[in-house]
Amino acid sequence: MDLKLDSIGHSYGDLEILRDISLDIPKGKIVCIIGPSGCGKSTLLRMIGGLEQPGRGQILQIGDVPDGCLNPLTYVFQDFALLPWRTVEGNIQLVLEDHRLGAQQTEAIIADVLARTKLSDFRQALPKQISGGMKQRVALARALAVNPAVMLMDEPLSALDSQTRELLMGDLVALWEREPFTAVYVTHNLNEAVRLGHSIVLLSRRPGRIREIVEIDTPLADRTLGDPELERKQVQLWQLMRDEAVAADQELLSV
């Protein structure tokens, strides 16, 4: 299943935040969306998943939802959004309960996603007992449990420290290598974008438009920390983004 964004635009009252965004999200690829703060990238992601309605344009689903997919468009949130009163296992169970899968199948899914995210030993832990990186892995396991057609990731690593972020990037790459998933990955971190994105969409400052789409052909597994090719891409992106970021910064001050 592919997604197509057809000239999306949106305004909050008089404030135009997104303008004429057309974009293809092909199956099995990770599309990173980057842009200065306040450019509407998180709003765009909420629209892609149907949590917000775009003022103009539409979001199209091309092809059928694959079999066994319980929730085609699934989010991973920046602040994890785990229920604090449920254990790791219970949080994953939450999203399966409404589908009436039967105890055996539910158990099989939970065991599988916990193994894939290396959480099998922490089944009965409460969110307050585990670290931020682990919490995001639980959220990732929860997203994988519903077997999504497209993962919508809203700055999933931004609440984590840089070491944890590096570890989780490795985990994400390993997960993708094992079983390529489709994802839209919103971030403000250029390093994450060049490490994880097959294509990187650079949005301009408000109103957000597509400024540039950069493709990176290096396979995800070969993109290591400090790779000169990636560094070059990152510098290139930063040069494109710098002026936008400066302008966005001053814009906020004058509002």
């Binding site: 998943g49 949590l51 949130f77 959004a81 229920l83 939450l94 999203v95 409404d98 929860r142 519903v146």
Partner: peptide
């Protein structure tokens, strides 16, 4: 509210959201 949005994003039913997210919260 982010927990409620999470529930909606996983297409939980209204009853499930109230019973499993709003009430315990």
């Amino acid at each position: 509210r982010t927990l409620i949005r999470m529930g909606q994003s996983f297409s939980l039913s209204w009853v499930s959201i109230v019973r499993k997210i709003v009430l315990p919260g």
